[in-house]
Design a protein around this nucleic acid. Structure first.
Length: 210
DNA sequence: GACCAGGCACATC
DNA sequence: GATGTGCATGGT
């Protein structure tokens, strides 16, 4: 399995090239984006983030102090805007109370501690937590998402009833915890998923992995 | 007009 | 522990 995982990565990397994720200008923007992109296309998330940027609100304290209804209105393009406003607020409350909204402070904690803390925030599940850990805080944690599952299921590398942890362990037990590798691998799987592995119209006959 | 998109919490069995 | 449901916009 170790060789298989490496081989898949090499094929993806040589086919698509570096993805340079996460698309965002700052770690805090990555954190916000990780919550906004829950079950939502990235194009819609970009519109929401643009609204926040245009209003110069993309900072922990400013967002936290914003009235929830106003926040919801601004992130409306990202969908589920009422619940996401609440989830963002829950995260900001945690980030400010525990770390004063400081990237330096939160980065000092280990990924194990941070993951447990993030998962205790209502609205942050395993994928969102891991996205924040990997792409905002530079912790070598593998992110599992719908694309990862779909691709690996079609290639019969996982079972369809596998838990998040089981799929994540497949990667983390067989690959060295390398920041660059985990960063690119997940991004490449998303790229592959978007281009070749749609839900309804699989185009696996031209899949680069074949 | 249907389908889909870089999830999660909650209710129910 | 498994399964079903609500949350919502915008692109194809």
């Amino acid at each position: 399995m170790k060789r298989r995982l490496k081989s898949i990565y090499k094929k993806l990397y040589s086919h698509f090239g570096p993805q340079a994720w996460w698309p965002g200008d700052s770690p805090f923007e990555v954190m916000v984006g990780a919550i906004l992109t829950q079950n939502t296309s990235w194009a819609n998330v970009e519109k929401a983030i643009k609204n926040l940027k245009n209003n110069k609100l993309l900072s922990p304290l400013k967002l936290y102090r914003l009235h929830p209804k106003k926040l919801a209105l601004l992130i409306r393009p990202a969908g589920y805007y009422n619940i996401k406003a609440k989830r963002l607020n829950n995260f900001l409350k945690f980030y400010i109370n525990h770390y004063r909204g400081s990237l330096k402070k939160i980065s000092q904690k280990t990924s194990k501690v941070l993951r447990r803390q993030l998962l205790s925030v209502n609205g942050i599940g395993p994928e969102t937590a891991d996205s924040i850990l990997l792409y905002a805080l530079n912790k070598p944690v593998f992110v599992v998402d719908a694309y990862t599952r779909r691709i690996f299921l079609r290639h019969k590398l996982i079972k369809d009833n596998g838990s998040y942890t089981q799929v994540q362990d497949l990667f983390m037990c067989n690959l060295k915890p390398n920041l660059k590798l985990f960063n690119e691998y997940h991004a490449l799987l998303v790229k592959l998923g978007k281009d070749f592995c749609l839900k309804s119209k699989p185009k696996c006959n031209i899949c680069p992995l074949k």
